[in-house]
């Protein structure tokens, strides 16, 4: 298991990040090709104010982030990555204040492209809310992540 404090995603998901700072991610399992994170369903992502259901985009947003984080953890050196594509199946909606778990697994890396699967489940009962598969380009023209680490 990779210690959480040195997991590259822990740097990327830092409290200084304008988006990730609002999620308060809790790392619950980290392996070289696997990442699982716990978080809470926040009010700002509510879609239906009558039922307190969150918008599907909330799960998509988390999946893209955690799946990308799992790729970072699988690399021998820190490199920028970019999502190439992402397909998400939404089976159920998260509710406000739900505790959720998003896990992501790097299935393979070939020719600088990582194929990743991900899942969001409700922590309380393990109900699957969304499944996703995506591909990520490793090494982009973006500024290297080590610069991000230094800036923090």
């Amino acid at each position: 298991m990779i210690p959480v404090m040195i997991h590259p995603a822990a740097i990327f998901f830092s409290p200084a990040h304008p988006l990730f700072s609002i999620f308060k991610f809790e790392f619950i399992e980290t392996k070289p090709d696997f990442l699982a994170i716990k978080f809470i369903a926040l009010e700002r992502f509510v879609d239906r104010v009558d039922t307190n259901h969150l918008h599907s985009g909330f799960c998509t947003l988390i999946l893209d982030s955690v799946m990308g984080g799992s790729v970072m953890g699988s690399l021998e050196k820190m490199q920028p990555i970019a999502t190439i594509n992402l397909t998400t199946q939404h089976s159920s909606r998260a509710m406000l204040d739900d505790y959720l778990i998003c896990s992501a697994n790097v299935e393979c890396i070939e020719d600088q492209i990582a194929i990743v699967t991900g899942q969001v489940t409700r922590d309380e009962n393990g109900e699957i809310l969304a499944n996703a598969v995506g591909s990520f380009m490793i090494g982009t023209r973006a500024t290297p992540l080590v610069s991000t680490a230094g800036a923090n």
């Binding site: 304008p18 988006l19 918008h55 893209d64 992402l86 991000t148």
Partner: peptide, 24 residues
């Protein structure tokens, strides 16, 4: 808005934000 940023080093919008826009 700044909260839409995915990579602060290049100021790109998070892919999940774009996906949320598409879904909406």
């Amino acid at each position: 808005h700044e909260q839409h940023i995915g990579n602060p080093m290049i100021g790109s919008i998070h892919g999940g934000v774009t996906a949320s826009l598409v879904e909406m």
